[in-house]
Simulated assay, not measured.
Amino acid sequence: MIRLSDVCRHIRSKNAGPFWITVDLFFANPDVFERWAKSPALQASELAKQFEVDASLVRIQILPELATVKFSYPRKEPQGGRVERDMHGGQQFVRILDLELTR
């Protein structure tokens, strides 16, 4: 199987305000982007499972001119809350590095 980390040159996550996280998937090149950007594993329902959120709240942007997919989802707890474990949201992408892609 092909993993997300096999087809992206860079994957990052970051805050999108105190209540949201955004993940950026920078594909290796436009051809790889065309092949994998619309994989079933990168649909809202599947991403919601990975981050344990309601699928109706996952927002996806497909940016072919940048060979990038961006998606945002709500944090379980607000940034800076007493149970916060990743203040900047910079470690949230790790759980999808081994996400298996299909076409």
Rank of each mutant, 00 (worst) to 15 (best):
G80S: 08
L97W: 13
E65Y: 09
P30L: 10
A41Q: 05
E84G: 02
G81R: 00
R9S: 14
S5H: 13
G81W: 00
T102P: 08
S72D: 14
N29G: 02
M87A: 01
R9I: 10
G90H: 06
R85W: 12
V23I: 09
R3L: 14
R12V: 10
Y73E: 05
L4A: 05
N15V: 09
V7A: 03
G80K: 04
D54P: 07
A55M: 03
A16Y: 11
R12E: 12
W20N: 07
A55D: 05
V23S: 03
S39L: 09
A44M: 01
R75H: 04
I62P: 01
K14Y: 14
F93A: 14
Q91V: 11
V7I: 01
L25Y: 13
D6C: 01
E65V: 08
E84S: 06
I11F: 09
M87E: 09
Q92F: 04
Q79G: 02
E46P: 11
C8T: 08
A28N: 02
K70D: 04
D98M: 07
A55Q: 09
Q91M: 11
P30A: 14
L66Q: 15
T22F: 03
R82K: 09
I11H: 05
E65H: 07
V94R: 12
V53P: 00
G81T: 02
I62A: 03
V23K: 04
V83E: 13
A44D: 04
E84A: 04
D6V: 12
L4Q: 06
I21F: 04
V58L: 04
F51I: 03
A44E: 09
R85Y: 14
L4I: 06
F51E: 00
C8D: 08
R95Q: 15
I2G: 05
H10Y: 14
E52M: 09
Q79K: 06
I60L: 13
K76V: 11
L66C: 12
F93Y: 15
R9D: 11
L101G: 10
E100R: 07
R85S: 15
S72M: 12
V32I: 13
D86A: 07
R85K: 14
G80H: 06
S39Y: 01
G17A: 01
T68Q: 05
S5P: 13
Q61F: 14
V69Y: 12
L63K: 10
M1P: 15
R85L: 15
A55G: 04
A37T: 10
D98T: 07
A48W: 00
G81D: 00
R3Q: 14
D86L: 02
P78W: 04
S45E: 12
V53R: 11
A28D: 07
W36F: 13
A28K: 06
D54W: 02
A37L: 00
L66N: 10
T22A: 13
F33T: 02
Q92K: 11
P30E: 13
E77V: 08
S5R: 14
E46I: 06
H10Q: 11
L25C: 06
R103Y: 10
S45F: 03
Q79S: 09
E65R: 05
W20F: 00
Q92G: 15
T102W: 08
L42Q: 07
R82I: 08
E100Q: 08
L42A: 09
V83P: 05
H88M: 10
P18R: 10
I11A: 12
W36N: 02
I11Y: 11
